[in-house]
Amino acid sequence: MSSSILAIDAGTTGVTAVVVSDAGDIIAKGYQEFAQHFPKPGWVEHAPEEIWQATLEATRDALKQV
């Protein structure tokens, strides 16, 4: 029986979702950027809801390819 894993990486500027086969091959990949907010010099903030929505979109994009 074949299986796969969905891996999600939330980075500084976006979210990558990758579907990997049990053999370690990348089957599909999705990516979605989210905004960075700079309230003061040297500060960076992110809105949790934007990260969540980017995660959902990147995951949808990856799973459409499977």
Rank of each mutant, 00 (worst) to 15 (best):
M1W: 08
M1I: 09
S2V: 09
S2L: 03
S2C: 01
S4G: 10
I5R: 08
I5P: 00
I5G: 01
L6A: 06
L6V: 15
L6Q: 09
I8H: 05
I8F: 04
I8P: 07
I8R: 06
D9F: 04
D9Y: 08
A10H: 03
A10W: 03
G11K: 06
T12G: 15
T12A: 15
T13Y: 04
T13D: 02
T13N: 11
G14I: 00
G14N: 02
V15D: 00
V15L: 03
V15R: 01
T16Q: 08
V18P: 01
V19W: 00
V19E: 06
V19F: 01
V20P: 03
V20E: 04
S21N: 10
S21Q: 10
S21R: 11
S21D: 12
D22V: 05
D22S: 13
G24Q: 09
D25W: 07
I26R: 12
I26S: 09
I26V: 15
A28N: 06
A28T: 08
G30R: 01
G30T: 05
Q32E: 14
Q32R: 12
E33L: 00
E33A: 11
E33V: 01
F34T: 05
F34Q: 05
F34S: 02
F34D: 06
Q36T: 10
Q36E: 05
H37E: 10
H37G: 02
P39L: 10
P39W: 13
K40T: 07
K40C: 02
P41T: 10
P41L: 12
G42S: 07
W43F: 15
W43Y: 14
V44K: 05
V44Q: 06
V44T: 13
V44W: 02
V44I: 15
E45L: 07
E45C: 07
H46S: 03
H46L: 06
A47D: 15
A47S: 06
A47K: 13
E49A: 11
E49C: 04
E50P: 09
I51V: 15
W52M: 11
Q53R: 12
Q53F: 00
Q53K: 11
Q53C: 03
Q53H: 11
Q53A: 10
A54I: 00
A54H: 01
T55H: 11
T55D: 03
T55R: 04
T55W: 04
L56M: 14
E57Y: 08
E57N: 14
A58E: 01
A58N: 07
A58W: 03
T59F: 03
T59H: 08
R60C: 02
D61H: 11
D61M: 14
L63G: 05
L63P: 10
L63W: 13
K64L: 12
K64V: 11
K64A: 14
K64E: 14
K64P: 01
Q65G: 08
V66E: 10
V66D: 07
